[in-house]
Simulated scan of single mutants.
Amino acid sequence: MGNPPDRRCDLDDLLEDVSGLVSPPEIIIRLRSALDAPGSTASSLAAIVAQDPNLSAQILRLANSAMYGLPQRVETVSRAIAVIGTRALYHLALAVTATHTFSRLPCELVNMAVFWRHSVFTALIAHDLAQRCNVLHPERLFVAGLLHDVGSLVLYGRHPDLLRETMLITRGCEPLLASHEREILGFDHADVGAELLTRWGLPESLRTAIRLHHQPDRALGTGLEATLVYLADMLSNRTEQGCFSEFGPRNEEIPDAIWECLGLDPEDGEDCRANVGWRFMETLTVILPQARY
């Protein structure tokens, strides 16, 4: 049997085909440049965000949401930066703008309401897990959890006829879905998402986490981020609100090595799921204010 065909050119072609639809908006590019500049200040970042009133309002709603539980209400972007930090502000802006951008992708095979519920639920669990593991800038994991499946929107939007049967026979089992995608195309939706988010400036650790979120054995060897996103995805799929499948929750086994790597146990996972539940709808309506859930 010969070697499998090289599908890399197909992945490049796929991304090139949607590059105009999913390119990062100018405000994210400017925020990233300002954040990396030596003379960057909170006021300079606030000035950039203030140029987009809708983005400013959504960031303030997130800063005032139960995700942070601040004792006093934050009224301005400058104050939000002072309270949550410049990098947290950037990651929240990234989460809001990326979600808005990807939600416009036409995709007849994916139930968009279910997709974004799963994405937001996973994001909140990833954020909580990161806090429990004392990960620096846990908002990074919120972003990775939120965007871990965006490759699906591209893949199933561009190849509906090729992948329609895959969606039907896997019945919402994500690892099996990714396996079928690799058999058909040579890559899966996680590969597409990771490459896509290179263009958004996500750091390598988060791109790797997205690429490996269905491959726990490989995730364990690449750092906490990949393991956290994998675990958040699995825990989300165990809930009615956050499951990826339209067929209901899936209680797939989580390897002991995952808990051991993070210094957590299944009770921590249950606590995270419970904590996310009462914050879920508030966060969903902030991230996607115009959507139908």
Rank of each mutant, 00 (worst) to 15 (best):
residue 2 G to E: 11
residue 2 G to N: 11
residue 3 N to Y: 04
residue 4 P to I: 11
residue 6 D to N: 14
residue 14 L to W: 03
residue 17 D to R: 10
residue 17 D to P: 00
residue 20 G to T: 04
residue 20 G to A: 04
residue 21 L to S: 07
residue 23 S to P: 07
residue 24 P to S: 10
residue 27 I to K: 06
residue 28 I to V: 11
residue 31 L to P: 13
residue 33 S to R: 15
residue 37 A to T: 03
residue 39 G to E: 11
residue 39 G to S: 10
residue 42 A to E: 14
residue 45 L to I: 10
residue 46 A to L: 02
residue 50 A to C: 08
residue 51 Q to K: 15
residue 52 D to H: 11
residue 54 N to L: 09
residue 59 I to K: 11
residue 61 R to G: 09
residue 62 L to V: 02
residue 62 L to R: 01
residue 65 S to W: 04
residue 68 Y to E: 02
residue 68 Y to H: 07
residue 70 L to W: 05
residue 70 L to H: 07
residue 72 Q to V: 15
residue 73 R to M: 14
residue 74 V to S: 06
residue 77 V to H: 07
residue 78 S to E: 12
residue 79 R to L: 13
residue 81 I to E: 09
residue 81 I to K: 09
residue 90 Y to L: 15
residue 91 H to F: 03
residue 93 A to R: 04
residue 93 A to F: 05
residue 96 V to Q: 03
residue 98 A to R: 03
residue 99 T to P: 00
residue 102 F to E: 02
residue 110 V to N: 00
residue 112 M to T: 14
residue 112 M to Q: 15
residue 117 R to L: 13
residue 118 H to D: 00
residue 118 H to A: 04
residue 127 H to Y: 09
residue 128 D to M: 01
residue 130 A to D: 12
residue 131 Q to E: 13
residue 133 C to A: 08
residue 133 C to G: 02
residue 134 N to V: 02
residue 141 L to R: 04
residue 141 L to F: 06
residue 143 V to D: 00
residue 143 V to F: 01
residue 144 A to I: 00
residue 145 G to M: 00
residue 145 G to E: 00
residue 146 L to A: 02
residue 148 H to Y: 00
residue 149 D to Q: 13
residue 150 V to I: 15
residue 151 G to D: 09
residue 152 S to D: 08
residue 154 V to M: 08
residue 154 V to I: 15
residue 155 L to G: 03
residue 156 Y to C: 06
residue 160 P to C: 09
residue 160 P to N: 08
residue 165 E to D: 11
residue 165 E to R: 09
residue 166 T to Q: 05
residue 170 T to Q: 01
residue 171 R to A: 15
residue 174 E to S: 12
residue 174 E to A: 13
residue 178 A to I: 05
residue 179 S to L: 14
residue 182 R to S: 03
residue 186 G to H: 07
residue 189 H to A: 05
residue 191 D to Y: 03
residue 193 G to T: 02
residue 194 A to M: 03
residue 195 E to R: 03
residue 197 L to F: 11
residue 198 T to L: 11
residue 200 W to I: 14
residue 204 E to P: 09
residue 209 A to E: 00
residue 211 R to M: 08
residue 215 Q to S: 15
residue 217 D to S: 14
residue 225 E to W: 11
residue 227 T to F: 07
residue 228 L to E: 04
residue 229 V to Y: 00
residue 232 A to G: 03
residue 233 D to K: 01
residue 235 L to A: 14
residue 237 N to T: 06
residue 240 E to Y: 14
residue 241 Q to W: 04
residue 243 C to F: 05
residue 246 E to I: 10
residue 247 F to K: 12
residue 247 F to Y: 15
residue 253 E to C: 11
residue 253 E to V: 14
residue 256 D to P: 12
residue 257 A to Y: 09
residue 261 C to Y: 02
residue 262 L to A: 01
residue 266 P to H: 09
residue 272 C to R: 03
residue 274 A to E: 15
residue 274 A to T: 15
residue 284 L to N: 01
residue 285 T to R: 15
residue 286 V to E: 04
residue 293 Y to V: 13
